[in-house]
């Protein structure tokens, strides 16, 4: 395994694996992240994993780069000798309505893929997606891989407002927009009962399935989600 440890910032180090977008490799990055969190060294301030890289923010008042590098090398050795448990991937299921009302770019996806909308929905929901990383915005999970025929490039002019909970495709990646924001991905549906906080339950390395539901079912789920949400209003924390 080709790995390097680099200076990322004044108080941070970057572990860089082979530069490719690959599930197995990304899995290794998440196992390393879990090891670091489990070991919880006293100087650890933050750790964030992306596709093939992982950044560690450390407390420069109590340690330095050389010591962090040495510690990381030991962790990598254990990782390479498979002396660690695998990453515990959570599976999340989301109900998605693909009705035209929500699927703003379905036509575009159909044209690119030469598939009908029901074929697109079938192919899209048959896949189990891997959370490669979370970034760009709170709870924005980069999911993959989108089945080959559905790999449609970003739209030419990004929308200024993509509704929260929109399910969207950009090439081999797919995502749920955690909150209403600008965005340039192809929107093909909307998650039922999605809340701003929903994305914060997702962790890199988790798995996600989408289950197609009717408009009627979407409305029912939205209604129950509202009740649930009002019951827990005021608590945005819920994190350790």
């Amino acid at each position: 395994m080709q790995v390097s440890i680099e200076v990322a910032g004044i108080d941070s180090a970057m572990v860089v694996f082979e530069p490719k977008v690959n599930k197995q490799l990304n899995h290794q990055v998440h196992i390393l992240r879990d090891m670091i969190i489990r070991a919880q060294p006293s100087w650890l301030i933050d750790v964030v994993a992306a596709y093939h890289s992982l950044m560690i923010v450390y407390d420069i008042q109590t340690t330095d780069f050389d010591r962090v590098e040495q510690w990381l090398k030991n962790q990598l050795n254990q990782l390479q000798q498979h002396k660690v448990d695998g990453h515990q991937a959570n599976i999340h299921e989301f109900f998605v309505c693909f009705d035209a009302e929500f699927a703003l770019d379905m036509e575009r996806v159909c044209e690119h893929s030469c598939l009908s909308s029901s074929e697109v929905i079938e192919r899209y929901s048959a896949e189990t997606y891997h959370v490669y990383t979370i970034g760009f915005a709170p709870g924005f999970a980069y999911l993959g891989d989108v089945p080959e025929p559905l790999q449609v490039p970003r739209v030419d002019t990004p929308r200024t407002k993509v509704p929260a909970g929109s399910v969207a495709i950009a090439n081999q990646q797919t995502a749920i927009y955690p909150r209403t924001s600008p965005g340039g991905w192809n929107i093909i549906g909307r998650v039922a009962g999605w809340r701003t906080q929903s994305g914060l339950q997702l962790r890199a390395g988790d798995q996600i399935r989408f289950i197609a539901v009717s408009k009627q079912r979407f409305i029912e789920i939205e209604a129950t989600a509202n009740v649930r949400f009002e019951g827990s209003a005021g608590s945005t924390e819920g994190q350790s």
Partner: peptide, 11 residues
Amino acid sequence: QIISEPLPLGT
């Protein structure tokens, strides 16, 4: 092009 990576402050 590079693959997206974590972004440290001051980069």
